[in-house]
């Protein structure tokens, strides 16, 4: 009866009509209309493992079920060098968020030649130039890394894959010739031969360690933080310049054998 409700009704009707005409959607009921996806990340990851492992990068454990997995293929390029293919499962390359938080199943890959990091990979394919691989046999390893550069791992062991690669321009002898000291170690049945001892090396000398084992393992030179995957029957070669003084152990990760001790003076 009073004009007020009528006016209100007119206004309401006009509002509805106008909203429809303008196509501007619903008036927000409380706040600004929903924006981007705000869903928190799900899945569990552990805190990073201790430092100084695995080439300076900490590991970050995930449960074995659902953990990412990786394979590595190395193909010769028809022109030069090699094409490296990282086949990762349950893993997405997320180059845009590198440096960000460790989110399960995401990140990038680190590529190592004989345990020395040579590239960060933001996609499954990578071209390796001939100069990147010195002459002789080497081991190429890929590890999956989180955005925060921790290495994804299961039970403390990095999610990784290795493949042999042969540098152009000569065999192992050439490489060996460059080394000032060559240490050859053989592991069989859990025994190390020659028995572990100390090798004295002058600072600045080039050291080459060749390890042959009968089980898959990882060779680790402490202090220099160099690692090599050990494949049964194939010598794992570690070559480096002893540029710091001290006592450094060379050991295997899984079997926890001390192979030798380097005394650099």
């Amino acid at each position: 009866m009073t004009p007020r409700p009528r006016r209100g009704a007119v206004a309401a009707a006009a509002l509805a009509a106008l909203a429809a005409v303008a196509g501007c959607g619903e008036r927000p009921t409380t706040h600004h209309r929903p924006g981007s996806d705000h869903r928190p990340v799900s899945g569990t990851v552990s805190t990073p493992g201790p430092a100084h492992e695995h080439g300076g990068h900490r590991t970050r454990d995930v449960p074995a079920a659902g953990a990412p997995a990786v394979r590595l293929e190395v193909r010769r390029d028809s022109e030069s060098g090699w094409n490296v293919h990282v086949i990762a499962e349950r893993f997405t390359f997320t180059p845009e968020s590198v440096g960000g938080a460790a989110l399960p199943g995401t990140g990038h890959a680190h590529l190592y030649l004989d345990g020395e990091k040579i590239a960060r990979m933001y996609a499954p394919w990578h071209h390796l130039a001939p100069a990147a691989v010195p002459p002789g046999p080497h081991t190429l390893t890929v590890r999956l890394s989180a955005d925060d550069h921790t290495i994804w791992s299961v039970g403390g062991k990095p999610v990784e894959a290795s493949a042999p690669i042969e540098g152009e321009g000569g065999g192992g002898a050439t490489a060996a010739a460059k080394a000032d000291e060559t240490i050859t170690v053989r592991i069989a049945g859990g025994r190390v031969s020659p028995p572990p001892g100390r090798v004295e090396i002058a600072k600045g000398r080039r050291v080459r360690i060749e390890v042959t084992g009968d089980k898959p393992d990882t060779v680790h030179v402490h202090g220099f933080d160099i690692e090599r995957a050990l494949t049964p029957g194939t010598p794992a070669v570690v070559e480096f310049t002893a540029d710091r003084t001290g006592l450094f152990e060379v050991e295997t990760h899984d079997s926890r054998l001390v192979l030798t001790q380097l005394v650099v003076r």
Partner: peptide, 12 residues
């Protein structure tokens, strides 16, 4: 911005 929040690269 259509990716999940953690993959957008806010840090960079």
């Amino acid at each position: 911005c259509a990716k999940p929040p953690g993959q957008r690269g806010y840090e960079s």
